[in-house]
Design a protein around this nucleic acid. Structure first.
Lengths: 368, 368
DNA sequence: TTGAAAGCGATACCAT
DNA sequence: ATGGTATCGCTTTCAA
């Protein structure tokens, strides 16, 4: 439904006087094309296009006149037509499958990735899509081939990840939140989970604790190569070796009740336990409750260090000493990296492994 | 970068034999067009288009042959070209400004809207975008005019909402999560906050409580016309009148520390307090801690009813008796409604006001 | 500095 | 049942 100004302005060359009137008459949804603008401004379509795209070879007077018309009409270029012609979409997507092997339920940490990513796209004037379907080889390729997106952000990366292999082979632009075993030529941002766990142990060891329990992600996730599970476990093994500790751990899922039960098991196995380390974001609440059930309070009878976002740490009582999971920032920086890649600003692969950041709150204290 | 099959298959009419080879040779990203498919299948583009769009007037043999070629090439139609021609995008967006008046920080409840909405779009094969910029009159109209989206979901609705007025006037398709003062002709899904608060009071009154504190959203949000704040307050006033209670409330923001402080104030004002009702999702944890500081435990010394999602309710200890906030479902149904509208399946406006759903857990008990 | 016209990849009308 | 072709709104040579 494209209304030609010419139909209204017949015989009038300036066009200006009648614009206001036209706007009045057609205030219900009408869509103008670049041709309408050109006609109303008395220039060619090419000139309007140049102005739209910020080219320099346009007379200042012409530019101002056209911009005036654009403003008066409320004209917005047709994104699909622009994209079709220019061979890009200015649209990126984050792959966020709602169900994936092992059905990790989404939590506030993961949604923070989304919000951060969306914010970065908005800041660079890109459209941001969220793809929640389970992708297959074909649907993944189709996303690019069908020109729905210019690039992707992948998360939940596994050490061997077919999506990564595929996109790398096809040479499609993407960025990972996480990283693989082989990251040659790839762009990513990840948290150094190995160092995170080591730092957590260093902290409680420094406070004098020796009998330290560890709540890890399920072995199954680690065996499947899920990055955080793999590397957190490596950090645990190094911490054990480095501090000559005897193993004391449980591998457990995200269910509050499971974490509660696992904490009790740790206490039963080692009644002398005085500290717990975990990479589960929401575990703190359940752990504190389980300890209380056994008559122990945090931090007086048992210290606790978890991996979590600031926001969640502040909610727990006592506020939990934690290793910060900057998920919002990671989402933001991932998209920011992708857009630099798309705009040709990123020549060399950028690989960012964020170091652990220990935030000391009230859930840890020296061994008494 | 569109590779013509013809260029490779020169002089060969079957095309089939060479397809595999072509795929080998060009396994790096290549994009085929409908013309490539037509050529390889030995039919016209019109025929391929018909098949792509599931038209019936195509011979079965032809259809199969073409589909075979499509599969072998891994061809996906160019979404922008399709949209340009067909006048639609199959893209919808959720407006989720990261900062809006009063800077309500996003919480898990709000991100649940997003996930639910994204899931519904995916289920109907629509692309889903998240727009986090602060929209203006022009940018909002531009979203439609520039053909970036077919429709929108609006949230954080105010009783008087300029976005709603604008879109209604322009006759652009949209759906609200929330509703206005005047909803004539509009589609929305909302939670009946008024009934929610009344139900919460009914519940504790029934348990024998009489001195009941209420934690409400800041007066400022209510005065600005923010839907949930307005209607929850109306529910509170009705509950007071209906049960002949004397007012006992605090209006407070989302900060855990503020809620903590407000709870203490309630206790100071009315030491005989035996129940608390709140519409703040994450308040339960802070309230329980504040009560504990004054030597009261939940539910023995004080009952607590909150508005929250199941997921959060399960995290608190004791699990909180709550009114369910089905935010995921609301997001899902909002998009589902929008898509029915877009596909012409929705003739009459659909306005859904979800009734309160009380979920009794362990944070309430009869007055002793 | 500006304009004319080809073409991006589809759809749909009109022929055959 | 199938094919030819104008067209969607824009960008981009190429000429002037």
């Amino acid at each position: 439904m494209c209304v030609s100004i010419a139909g209204i302005v017949t015989g009038n060359d300036t066009g200006f006087f009648l614009l206001g009137m036209a706007a009045e008459l057609m205030s219900e949804s009408t869509t103008y094309t670049i041709a309408d603008v050109a006609r109303a401004a008395g220039v060619s379509v090419s000139t309007v296009s140049r102005i739209l795209n910020g080219k320099q070879d346009v007379a200042q007077a012409t530019r101002e006149r056209v911009q005036q018309v654009i403003a008066e009409l409320g004209y917005s270029p047709h994104a699909q037509a622009q994209g079709l012609r220019a061979g890009r979409t200015r649209n990126i997507a984050l792959l966020f499958p709602l169900k994936y092997p092992g059905t990790l339920p989404y939590n506030s940490l993961e949604t923070d990735f989304i919000i951060g990513a969306a914010a970065a796209a908005a800041d660079r004037n890109y459209f941001f899509s969220l793809v929640t379907t389970q992708v297959t080889k074909d649907s993944l390729i189709g996303l690019y081939r069908s020109a729905q997106i210019d690039g992707l952000v992948l998360m939940h990366i596994h050490t061997q990840d077919w999506r990564v292999d595929l996109l790398r082979h096809k040479n499609y632009p993407f960025v990972m939140i996480g990283h693989c075993a082989d990251n040659t030529g790839l762009n990513f941002i990840d948290l150094d989970f190995e160092a995170v766990v080591q730092t957590a142990f260093d902290h409680v060891i420094e406070l004098g604790h020796q009998r330290i329990g560890f709540l890890a992600l399920p072995a199954e996730m680690r065996l499947r190569g899920f990055g955080p599970a793999v590397r957190a476990w490596e950090g645990y093994e190094k911490a054990l070796k480095h501090h000559r500790l005897s193993p004391l751990y449980r591998e457990v899922g995200y269910e509050a009740s499971d974490i509660f039960a696992a904490t009790l098991e740790l206490l039963d196995e080692q009644p002398g336990l005085t500290a717990i380390v975990t990479t589960h974001e929401f575990a703190a609440l359940s752990i504190i409750q389980a300890l209380k059930l056994r008559g122990r309070s945090v931090p007086d009878d048992c210290s606790l260090v978890a991996l979590m976002t600031e926001r969640i740490a502040a909610l727990s009582m006592p506020p939990t000493t934690h290793l910060d999971f900057p998920s919002h920032t990671m989402g933001y920086r991932a998209v920011e990296m992708l857009l630099r890649k798309l705009e040709g600003e990123l020549k060399e692969p950028e690989q960012i492994l964020l170091p652990p950041q220990l935030v000391i709150r009230d859930s840890t204290m020296p061994l008494r």
